[in-house]
């Protein structure tokens, strides 16, 4: 990051009189509120949820001087239009839409933030200094599309309250991070608990062939298309716990890579796991992009 004194200061975010809020004028295909999610509640059947691209969400918060897991907006394929009720400092990260990106900017009261269609990547994060201050549910403001917990996805006309800043601005003008790539993406894979349910050919196919991200993908997971991964073992698996990054193989043989809204437990064998640090990049993949797995899932 460049650290020479920023021209954006915290003062702009707290002018008296105006309402610290954002009015949603358009949402694009899907915009939700996301934060660090609901850790530690899996035993109650409550999934973690939270931002799909955690690194991008945290960066957006750092740029506006928020705690890293403050609530931000997760915008899917652009299209979000917001109007501010007060002068607010905002920053966008993740998929680049238009205008300032990876950099804090002041949005003057009454002005609009408009996100176009990003050329690459899927999810753009919009942090606002002070954080999106909707009511938390079970300790988090994240929308979990699988369980239905948290605030509903945004609709035009919603008015989002914005919190008060809790820390000084970081004095960062720009975070020089690369945009999410188009085309083929390679991530690291590690063995899953049920790799031994598959023959060596399936384990090899996973790491030597390309997997297409299909249009059935969402915050719950990427549905991948490629070589059918046949099992070497028949029978039922009792449901067992899993986390984001799990590569589960349903009877079709076409794996599902679970993302933020992964179920707490699943009843199909998990052949492998994407390295946790690489799962964020998977949350930026669009339908039609291809994914390759580097590493081995052979049982240890």
């Amino acid at each position: 990051m460049t650290l020479h004194g920023g021209h954006v200061t915290g003062r702009a975010a707290s002018q008296g009189g105006a309402t610290r809020s954002l009015t949603v004028l358009a949402t694009g295909p899907l915009t939700t509120v996301q934060d660090g999610g609901r850790p530690g509640q899996g035993a109650l059947g409550i999934g973690r949820s939270g931002a799909c691209d955690r690194a991008a969400a945290r960066l957006s918060n750092r740029l506006v001087g928020n705690p890293p897991d403050a609530a931000v907006l997760e915008v899917t394929l652009g299209g979000l239009v917001l109007r501010t009720g007060a002068d607010l400092v905002v920053a966008t990260t993740g998929a680049r839409c238009s205008g300032a990106h990876n950099a804090p900017t002041v949005l003057r009261a009454g002005r609009e933030l408009r996100l176009g269609l990003p050329p690459t990547g899927l999810r753009t994060y919009v942090a606002v200094r002070g954080g999106i201050a909707v009511e938390p549910v079970l300790g988090s403001r994240s929308t979990d599309l699988l369980s239905g917990l948290g605030p509903p996805a945004l609709s035009a006309g919603d008015v989002l309250p914005v919190g008060e800043p809790t820390a000084p601005m970081p004095g960062v003008d720009l975070a020089p991070v690369p945009d999410p790539p188009g085309g083929e993406v390679t991530v690291r894979v590690l063995p899953g608990p049920r790799a031994d349910w598959f023959p060596a050919e399936a384990a090899a196919a996973l790491t030597t062939t390309a997997w297409e991200v299909t249009g059935e993908s969402n915050r719950i997971g990427l549905r991948l298309a490629g070589v059918a991964l046949e099992r070497s073992r028949a029978g039922e698996l009792a449901s067992e716990g899993m986390v984001r990054g799990a590569l589960q193989v349903p009877p079709s043989g076409q794996p599902v890579l679970f993302l933020a809204d992964a179920p707490v437990t699943g009843g199909y064998p998990v052949i492998g796991y994407v390295e946790d640090a690489d799962v964020d990049r998977c949350g930026q993949l669009r339908p039609g992009q291809t994914l390759r797995f580097r590493g081995a899932v052979a049982p240890r």
Binding site: G42, A43, A238, S239, E240
Partner: peptide
């Protein structure tokens, strides 16, 4: 360990790396 998830035959332990 940030989460402990029991199921029918297993217990998942989720860690903070």
């Amino acid at each position: 360990v940030v989460d402990v998830v029991p199921a029918a035959r297993t217990v998942l332990l989720v860690t903070d790396p």
